[in-house]
Simulated scan of single mutants.
Amino acid sequence: MLDVGDDAPDVTAPMATPEAAATTDRGSYTSDDVAEFSLATALADGPVVLAFYPGVFSRTCTKELCQLRDWKADLSALDAPVYGVSADTPWSLLAFVDEYDIAYPLVSGFNNSVIADFGVRRESGLMAGIADRAVFVVAPDGTVTYTWRATEPLTFPDTDEVEGAVAAAAE
């Protein structure tokens, strides 16, 4: 797993956006509904929060992503985009965004290295290939300024710590 002070990898991956989920009927998604996420492009506007999670529509991840949805609404004055990242396909991410009214983009680690590049890919066991639950704050210069990784199920990052890390990264 990347540590504070490490350079974040310059990753690109498919992304499901709330706008695309709102304009296309669920079950009718095509590649035209999938955007491209580029960390370098996202960082051009300031710090970025990347929230890695195992998969959409699971009990724990649904709770986490909805908690992040509600937390992000509280941070409307703080200019820091939040991106969820999982191994799910972009089409299942679009369905999840639609179902739970997620107001931030979800990045697909399906068939690319974004999860491994951040060092949070499970390498063995029945669930090999999915992401561990982790959060990174990346400063505009690409430096990781905050990391958190779950050690138990149903644990979530302290959002006040994430907020503080974003504020510090923006300075």
Rank of each mutant, 00 (worst) to 15 (best):
E163W: 07
A150G: 15
E19C: 11
L39E: 07
D70G: 12
L78V: 11
D10W: 14
W91L: 12
S124D: 06
L43I: 03
V82R: 13
T60M: 12
S58R: 03
A167W: 01
A95W: 06
A170P: 01
F136W: 10
L68G: 06
A168M: 04
R133E: 04
P54D: 09
T30L: 10
D45I: 00
R69V: 00
G125S: 13
D158R: 15
L78I: 07
G5I: 03
A73C: 02
V56Q: 05
G164H: 13
T147R: 06
F57K: 02
R121C: 04
D88Y: 06
L78Q: 14
I115W: 05
K72P: 01
D10P: 02
A8P: 02
T17P: 00
S113A: 14
V138P: 01
D10E: 08
A51N: 08
D7P: 06
G164V: 00
F136T: 02
D3T: 03
D101E: 13
E152I: 00
V135R: 02
V114E: 00
A80H: 13
L78E: 06
P153I: 09
Y100N: 13
P81C: 07
F156G: 04
E163Q: 15
S113D: 12
R59T: 01
T151E: 08
L154T: 04
A20F: 13
L154F: 15
L39K: 11
F96E: 03
D32P: 05
D117P: 01
R121D: 00
V49W: 03
A22M: 14
R69P: 01
L126E: 10
A16K: 03
P153R: 14
W148F: 09
G142I: 05
D132C: 01
Y29I: 08
S76F: 13
E161P: 05
A80G: 11
G125V: 06
L39H: 12
L50P: 01
D101N: 15
E64K: 15
L93E: 05
P90A: 09
T60K: 09
V48K: 02
A80P: 05
Q67V: 00
A16I: 06
I130G: 02
T24G: 14
S92T: 00
M1Y: 11
G164E: 11
A51L: 09
M1F: 13
Q67K: 14
R149Y: 11
L106K: 11
D141V: 04
S58Q: 07
R133D: 01
E163I: 03
G55D: 06
D101L: 09
P47V: 02
L50S: 05
L94V: 01
D32G: 11
A42E: 02
L75W: 12
G142M: 11
C66Y: 15
T41D: 15
S28T: 03
L2E: 04
W148G: 02
E19A: 15
R69S: 11
T30C: 10
P54T: 09
T24M: 14
A22G: 14
A80C: 08
S58L: 04
D25A: 15
V166D: 00
T30R: 11
L50I: 06
A128V: 10
Y29W: 15
R122Q: 07
D6P: 07
A22K: 12
D141E: 10
A95E: 13
A8S: 10
D7S: 13
V120S: 10
I115G: 01
V114H: 02
M15T: 06
T159S: 09
A139W: 03
V49K: 01
A165K: 02
T23V: 04
